[in-house]
Amino acid sequence: MTVATALPLHPLALLLPELPEAEHEGLTASIAKHGQLTPATSWVSPDGVEWLIDGRHRARACEQLGVPLRVERLDGDQAAARAFVLGANVLRRHLTPSQRAAAASALATRGRGESGSTAASLTQTQAAAAAGVSERLVRAARTFATDEELTDAVIRGELTVTEAERRARGALRLQLSRESETQEWLTPWSIVEGVVRALGCIDGDPCAEPGRRIPASWHLTEDDDALRRSWENPDGTASRVFLNPPWDRAHQFVRRLLAEHDGGHVEQAVVLLPARLGSDYVTALTVRGYPRVELTGRLKFEPGRGATRTGRGEAHFASMLVGVGVALEAMHEAFGDQGVVVQAWATTPA
C-alpha cells in the first residue's frame, strides 16, 4: 500500500462515465467522515510511468479534502490492467448489459499472434467474460467501435448496443447512397453487412476499388500493389480483412491471404470467390477446414462506374464466401440466410 498526492490518469481510468454529482458528493462526505475505505489502483507501464487506472473519483475527492490518496499497485502486463479495470468497474457499478458490452468492446483489441504474458490487450471472449455479457453482444458493439459519439452514448446509457448498431449501419448506407458513380460492379451491401457481423469489424480491404466503398479502417487499391504489401494493421496488430480479389487473379490473392494469416498479420478474413470447386485456390482453403458459404443463386453486384444507378450486374457463375480463421457458427449466423454453410474436415494444419 502506498500513499500518493497525484498520479497521471491512464486512459483506462476514463473508460466509464463520471459518477453523477450527487454520488460524488456522497463519496466525498464518506471519505471526510470515515476515511478512504477502498484504495485506488495504480499500474506501472513498461516505460516506468505509474498510472492511476482505477479510482479517479476517490482521487478527486481526496484532492478536494486535501488528504493523500491511498493506492495499491497492480502487478502484471497491460492485459492484466485492462481486465482489472473492466472487472472492477462492472462489479462496482450498476451498468446495463449494453454499457458493459461497449466497455468490453473498447478493451477487446488483442490480435492474432499475441498470447500469454506478451499480450497487451484482451480477446473478445476474455473481455465478454470479464464484463459478464455474451461475446455476441461484444461483437455487435464492435460495429460502431470507431464512432466515438455512438460508443460514448452507449457507455453513458443513452443508447443500447442494438440502437447504436442500427444507427451505424444506417450511416454507412447513407454514405454509400451518396457516392458518385465508379466504373466497377461493387460487392452487394448484404454481403458487406454479413462480413461485418462475422468479423465484428473490417480492419482492411486489400482489394479496394478507387472509391474505397468497404467500411474498413484501411484500403489498398490497385495502385498500392497489395501482393507486395503487408496486410497487418498500421499499428502492427493482426487485422480482420474482407477480400474480394480480381477473380482472374484469385489464386494469387488466396495464396497471399494464407501467407499473411499463417504469418500472424491477418487474424481473420472473409473472402468472396467464384465457386469453382476443384480449383487450386478453393482446394487450398478447403483442405484447411475453413467454413464456406455456397451462395444461393447468382450474385447481383451493385452498380458502379459505367453502370446506371438502377442497374445490377449479375455474375455468370455461382459464388462463395470462405471464412479464414472464422468460426463455423459465426459464418452461419452472418450468412445463413444467403446460402448453404459447409465445412470440410481439415487435412492440413490450419
Rank of each mutant, 00 (worst) to 15 (best):
A4C: 10
A4D: 08
A4P: 01
T5C: 11
T5L: 11
P8E: 04
H10K: 06
L12E: 06
L14H: 08
L14F: 03
P20L: 09
E23R: 13
H24W: 11
H24M: 07
G26E: 11
A29Q: 11
L37C: 10
S45Q: 05
R56Q: 07
R58N: 05
C62T: 09
L65F: 02
L65P: 06
V67A: 02
P68I: 08
E72V: 14
D77P: 12
A81S: 04
G87A: 15
A88G: 03
A88D: 12
N89T: 11
R93G: 01
R93H: 12
L95K: 10
Q99P: 08
Q99A: 02
R100C: 14
A104F: 05
S105Q: 09
G111H: 07
E114M: 05
E114Q: 15
S115Y: 13
G116H: 04
S117Y: 11
S117A: 14
A119H: 05
A128K: 07
A128T: 08
A128I: 07
A131W: 05
A131Q: 05
G132N: 09
G132R: 05
S134W: 09
E135F: 07
R136F: 12
V138P: 01
R139V: 08
A141E: 07
T143Q: 15
T146Y: 11
D147P: 02
D152R: 14
A153T: 06
A153M: 06
I155T: 14
T162M: 10
T162L: 12
E179L: 15
E181N: 15
T182E: 15
W185T: 12
V192Y: 07
V192D: 05
V195Q: 07
R197Y: 09
L199A: 02
P206S: 13
C207A: 15
P210H: 11
G211E: 15
R212A: 13
R213P: 08
I214Y: 02
A216D: 10
A216I: 12
S217A: 15
W218G: 01
H219E: 07
D224Y: 03
L227M: 05
R229M: 13
R229W: 08
P234K: 10
D235C: 02
D235W: 01
L243M: 12
N244L: 04
A250C: 06
Q252N: 13
V254C: 00
L258S: 01
A259K: 15
E260A: 01
H261R: 12
H261V: 12
G264T: 02
G264W: 01
Q268Y: 00
L277E: 14
S279C: 03
D280C: 09
T283D: 13
L285Y: 06
V287M: 01
Y290F: 13
P291G: 05
T296R: 13
G297F: 03
G297C: 06
L299S: 05
F301K: 09
F301S: 02
E302P: 01
E302T: 13
P303L: 09
G304K: 03
G306I: 00
A307W: 14
A307D: 09
R312S: 10
R312M: 04
H316K: 14
A318Q: 11
M320S: 10
M320P: 01
L321K: 09
V326M: 00
V326H: 04
E329G: 11
M331S: 04
H332T: 15
E333H: 12
V341Q: 04
A344C: 05
T348K: 11
T348F: 07
T348W: 11
A350K: 13
